Simulated assay, not measured.
Amino acid sequence: MALSLAQAHQRRARAAMESAKTAPMQSMAGATAYEHQLNQLLQDRLRLKSIQSNEGKAALKLQLLPEYIPYVEGVLEAGNGAQDEVMTTVMVWRIDAGDYKGALDVAAYVLKHKLVMPDRFERTTGCLVAEEIASAALKAQKAGDDSFDIGVLYRTLEMTEDQDMPDQARAKLYLAAGRATLVGLNAETRGQAGQLEAGIDLLKRAIELHDGCGGKKDLDGAERLLKKHTVSAE
């Protein structure tokens, strides 16, 4: 059942107050708002475990996430960086549900305060954010869908620039961003000033990080296109 405006306001205010009182690196355990959401999270995880389909899980997460909005907003507004399993889980669920902008809003807080991912996620926060968003973009690109928000990819690159992760994971993100930057460019259309060159640089970085990332064909095509535009401009 959807929260009323009064309930949402109360939950947000309580989350803001309690997260503001909890020191960085300490746990939110024991805080009323946190315990309420954690209990809800445990129930929702049980519902998700009963579904085998990843698409089905993503659809259910999309339905469940609105219940967590007031709490998340309260923590983002006033939190000091206390360890918070609700925030880290909501971040992942938003990625799974396709709410990439919302996921990055939470990721900015999680990364800033160095919140630790629960053991079940196995990867560091920075690696998870970079790799999951890159994988979603690459999947869309492979299917011929060029609508994945390039702003999300650039924001993810910036946000995870100083995060430690395997080179292969970071290469995926550069590859996805490079391909997205080159969308729509052809012999007749060069795009904005520097766009073609920027796409080439991103692809080169992806290949530098992981030679087998799959970007060599894209790079060859982009470099040939750049030569054509250079010749036509002379």
Rank of each mutant, 00 (worst) to 15 (best):
V152S: 03
A169M: 14
R47G: 06
M28C: 08
T124H: 12
Q163V: 09
A2T: 04
L48W: 04
D201W: 06
N39D: 15
D162V: 14
L138Q: 03
T22C: 12
Y34A: 03
V92M: 07
T124I: 11
G144T: 05
V152M: 05
S19G: 09
A20E: 15
A8S: 09
L128P: 00
Q37F: 14
E132G: 02
N186L: 02
V110S: 02
L226K: 11
T181L: 04
T125C: 14
D119K: 08
M165L: 08
L182C: 06
M28V: 08
A198P: 01
K114C: 06
S53R: 02
E208A: 09
A97C: 00
R11S: 13
Q37E: 15
E131H: 06
A198K: 15
E132K: 13
D119F: 09
T156Y: 02
R11V: 11
V90K: 02
G199W: 05
D162Q: 13
L46N: 15
Q7C: 09
K49C: 10
E122W: 03
L3E: 10
K112R: 15
R94K: 13
G98A: 03
R12M: 15
T160I: 04
G199F: 05
I207L: 09
T125A: 15
D96P: 01
Q163I: 06
M28F: 07
T156V: 06
I95P: 01
I69T: 12
L42W: 15
L175N: 11
A15F: 11
N80M: 13
S232C: 00
S50G: 08
A59P: 10
D211Q: 11
M91Y: 03
E55K: 12
E35I: 03
Y100T: 06
F148T: 05
H113R: 01
Q195K: 09
V116N: 12
D201S: 14
V116M: 14
S50H: 10
D99Q: 12
A198C: 10
S19Y: 08
E122D: 01
A137Y: 01
L196V: 04
D96T: 06
Q141L: 11
A187Y: 00
L225V: 04
M17A: 15
T181M: 09
A16K: 07
D145C: 04
S147A: 09
V231D: 12
A103C: 01
T189V: 15
P166F: 00
V72L: 04
E208P: 00
I150N: 11
A16L: 06
A15P: 07
R94W: 00
D146V: 03
D146C: 03
D201E: 15
E67S: 14
S232I: 09
T125M: 13
K228D: 14
R179I: 13
A180F: 04
A103E: 02
A16D: 09
A103W: 00
E67R: 12
G126V: 07
A180G: 07
S53C: 02
L203N: 08
D119T: 11
I69V: 12
A33T: 05
A169S: 15
L138Y: 01
M159S: 01
T125V: 10
I95H: 01
A8W: 02
A23H: 04
K101R: 11
L38D: 13
L219C: 05
V152T: 10
V86P: 01
M159Q: 10
E77Y: 02
W93D: 02
T189M: 13
K112L: 13
G214R: 05
A103N: 00
E132D: 14
V231Y: 10
L203Q: 05
V86D: 00
I207R: 00
Q141E: 07
L219H: 07
